[in-house]
Design a protein around this nucleic acid. Structure first.
Lengths: 149, 149
DNA sequence: TCTTGACGTCAAGTGGACTTGACGTAGTCG
DNA sequence: CGACTACGTCAAGTCCACTTGACGTCAAGA
């Protein structure tokens, strides 16, 4: 009987690393932080569940937009310890993250639009356009931005 | 004749720090990197032009969404050394940044939407929905994401 | 004038996110 | 069976973005 190979649920470190586009050392690191989990073979080698790839994709996508590993772990921590996450698990995480992501998107769009508007009015110069009031910017990104990320 | 005070163009470090919501040491640091500039008084104290507040707001807004200081400096470096930036200066920077920001927004929205969809289908489980194919995610965020940020 | 606080410089420390190195073992292939 | 590669652990190193510390100076108010 031929061995199932392509559809194997348990993946080796090298496979995971390559498919997720991260270094094996990064897998160790993430595991040490509790972001991902593995089981061990008789010979003490790690084996990752296939859905670890999803988790890694999620981690990297989140990181990419400036979210820290602690925050990501917090979200992932709401998945069940063992077994597959349920709809309910995801719904819980999702509610929190949506707010966070919505907020980040909002800021990013604001940044982009402010930039676009600056083309039109030549701002960053003093008192030349409605966007040039530093306090407006402070209101949007200043003290608030310090507490928030 | 009374001294103009509120509308002073040149600001002291403490004023800039407070209004921009950063530490004075951060101003020093940014200056050492060439992100902001200052002139000195007779007594060797720094004085910042008022539009430094805009630059700082821009820096922090950009940082917030995961853009590094080197990249930010690169953009700011396209502003003129002395004098106020012109429409043309901004247009040049803006074109490049818009692409960058558009891209980041796109990824963020994709992340959010993937998350939202997961509520509907209970994914992160194996083979349960169109979003669960790890290679799809790899295509979007995997190897590409490593080169790109 | 004296004191207090904001500011100056420079070196070193911190925290996050990994990577590298040293060194020993496990599995696989010819 | 032997060699080679992938993997294991653990400590230390790196890079970025700042912060802290030590110590001296400038400036404004009582």
């Amino acid at each position: 009987m031929p061995q199932v190979h392509e559809d194997a649920i348990w993946l080796k470190p090298g496979q995971v690393a390559e498919r997720a586009g991260v270094a094996v050392s990064t897998l160790h690191y993430y595991e040490s932080l509790g972001l991902i989990r593995s089981r061990r073979t008789a010979g003490n080698r790690r084996e990752y569940r296939r859905d670890t790839l999803r988790v890694l994709a999620f981690v990297r996508a989140s990181q990419r937009v400036g979210i820290g590993l602690d925050r990501i772990k917090e979200a992932l921590g709401k998945l069940p310890e063992e077994g597959l996450p349920t709809k309910k698990d995801w719904a819980r995480i999702s509610r929190e993250w949506r707010d966070d992501l919505d907020d980040r998107i909002e800021h990013l769009v604001a940044l982009r639009d402010r930039f676009s508007n600056c083309i039109g009015c030549g701002c960053l110069s003093l008192k030349s356009c409605p966007y040039s009031n530093p306090d407006d910017i402070l209101g949007a990104d200043g003290h608030g931005a310090l507490r928030f990320p």
